[in-house]
Design a protein around this nucleic acid. Structure first.
Lengths: 370, 370
DNA sequence: TTGAATTGCGCAAACGATTGTGCAACGCTC
DNA sequence: GAGCGTTGCACAATCGTTTGCGCAATTCAA
């Protein structure tokens, strides 16, 4: 490794000081006392190191220590706002724990993801955080992880059983659906992203649970969408709005999908929320500023990032043979202006109440492994 | 480094095959022919390697080769849509060139940035891509780079003179301002982010150039804003709209700032574009879907990412002593619905023309170092 | 058959930092 | 002065892969 003039090695520093490389190493790694280096020598080394601006070669350290103090982060799309924010939280928390983050974008492709995982292994990351692509299942490349710690985010897998942290997507959709139902909506449809992906399917299931519990129709004709893009959502919303019974409310199961719904509504000269109510998933800055500002289900991204990292660090520090931990974090509804109250106005009889998600319904759920 | 059961070392493979570690290394690194390994031995090694799923230790390789095949990427905020998209482009292109990306978030803080740079150096990245924080200047920690290749993105620095790739922010603001002027606007103001940051100052300068060239007022009372957030932009827009002569058009010098302007307009019951025209900088999916869809100045993020990476790879492959390359990439205006035409309607006399940025005005500018 | 050329490896040193152990020097006690 | 204990290092091996060079075995040509 070519050393720049500004960064000598321990060897050059030792030669300049007339001590051994071992002594320099012990001082710089904070182990002078343990190895009985004298205070005088220690100070000489520290002064020389400070003056030279030495940067210890982490490669050599890692090889000797068999530990890199780095983690791998493999996510489907770095520019997706959810993953971008998640990456930020993970990177910041990792750095505070002395870890570096090696990032890879799996491009929503299982083959790219498999390659990214192998690459992380070759770089001997101490652990891996993986947000798996939706389909197909990614268990095969995960087997090559062996005993190397890995934590999933935004996904649960049964085989191999890995620890995971996700948001309670199902509950989020239930809350959103009940929010509409409580405001008089009976025809509630879903604009979904990619069927088969964890978050998507959980949200569909939550919508179904709430609809069924209220005796409302929740058949497949009320779900539209084939992919996670504005265009796909536009077509899906168009189909829902133009064919069959028009819904009074729509759940857009992602913020990009909400944009498609907004576009479709505008194209069809349908006013939100007057003619159609909308609840979107995952908050973005713009969602609070649109006209109208959107009622959304918000994920706790900061907590997600923090918990997934801490779960991984715990695994790195102390591998455990027990069942994998799975944290399902609560989501919450943020009410803004995109849902119309369809209930008849009864003056001064029933107070209009604003109900957010009840905290007792949303405690972190720890799920036992199957 | 603990080897998982699924990943033996070259040593274990060599022992199992009855050959030396050197032979296994030569075969797996694709150098069997160069080192005259027989076809029979080569095939034996390849089969055993495939069967065992061996993952070569990149750490050891890097130490021996003095090359990590990794690059460092230090950006001010991973979750900022611009940087998230830039990171995605860089990561994808890097991967295709066989490089991994080590990412760090400088949290818009010069001290964090300095630490991130040192961390990258300790990990012996082959090169560094740096999007410097705005203020203060970051030249001090850059000196510790020595001869290690570094390319700036979204910033130019004179000392040390480093190669850089940026968008033509100045020209972008000129185009936006002229766009408004050509549509009859005479009172054009700016909502800025953090003064002193490169993009911000370039955009202000471009606005001034266009305003001065048209003999229009461009004093400091027409510029408001102290930071890059919705709240700061909201306050700035409020000041511009409520005090003094109300502008007919506003440049929001970033998409987050545009959200603040939209909010301020709604609060003041000012309709866009009827009462106030708006041009925003940096496209986002939502900007095309808002009501009205926003006219924006778009940066070529894909090209930025690609060019900065290729410039860095060229520097890694062949350090050059000449003046640093600086690529200023053209931006373009995308006209949507947030700009009102204030010109008097003269029926059938003057064809209403839609003018995008003229390509000849926007060829990549290569700027000589000062 | 002999000598030269070719083939196909293995050995050992390198990369830079870490760490167990041994040893020289010194100080203290009897 | 001799013996013991303490201090403060340096030496050498380790980590896993790469690569220059030497050498044994084989082949070819005279």
């Amino acid at each position: 490794m070519p050393q720049s003039p500004a960064s000598p090695s321990l060897k050059t520093l030792a030669a300049a000081l007339g001590v051994s490389v071992a002594t320099v190493s012990r001082v710089l790694s904070g182990q002078a006392e343990r190895y009985r280096i004298s205070v005088a020598t220690r100070n000489r080394v520290l002064e020389a190191a400070s003056a030279s601006g030495i940067v210890v070669d982490q490669l050599a350290r890692s090889l000797r220590l068999r530990r890199t103090l780095s983690i791998g982060l493999v996510i489907p799309d770095i520019s997706n706002p959810f993953f971008a924010q998640l990456a930020r939280q993970i990177e910041r928390h990792a750095r505070r724990h002395g870890y570096s983050v090696l990032i890879a974008d799996s491009e929503e492709d299982a083959e790219v993801e498999a390659q990214a995982i192998r690459l992380m292994l070759s770089r001997r990351v101490d652990g891996l955080i993986l947000a798996p692509v939706g389909t197909p299942a990614t268990s095969a490349p995960l087997r090559s992880l062996g005993a190397r710690p890995c934590v999933l985010v935004d996904r649960l897998l049964d085989d191999p059983p890995l620890p995971a942290v996700t948001s309670d997507h199902r509950r989020g959709a239930e809350i959103a659906t009940l929010h509409l139902i409580e405001r008089g909506h009976r025809r509630i449809a879903c604009v979904q992203g990619s069927p088969g992906t964890f978050a998507n399917d959980e949200r569909i299931a939550g919508w179904r649970t709430a609809m069924a519990a209220s005796g409302l129709p929740c058949g497949p004709e009320r779900v539209a969408g084939t992919g996670y893009s504005i265009d796909a959502a536009l077509a899906a919303a168009h189909a829902l709005l133009m064919r069959g019974e028009r819904p009074t409310g729509i759940l857009a199961l992602g913020n990009v999908l909400a944009l498609g719904v907004l576009q479709a509504a505008r194209d069809a000269r349908i006013s939100i929320p007057d003619d159609l109510s909308l609840v979107a998933f995952d908050d973005q800055l713009w969602a609070a500023v649109t006209s109208p500002p959107l009622t959304i289900i918000e994920q706790p991204i900061e907590a997600l990032g923090r918990e997934v990292l801490e779960l991984l660090l715990a695994r790195i520090a102390s591998p455990t043979g027990g069942p994998p931990t799975r944290n399902i974090l609560p989501v919450r509804l943020i009410e803004r202006g995109s849902v119309r109250d369809l209930r008849p106005k009864i003056p001064a009889l029933v107070p209009i109440s604003h109900r957010a998600a009840d905290p007792s319904d949303n405690a972190t759920r720890r799920v036992a492994a199957p």
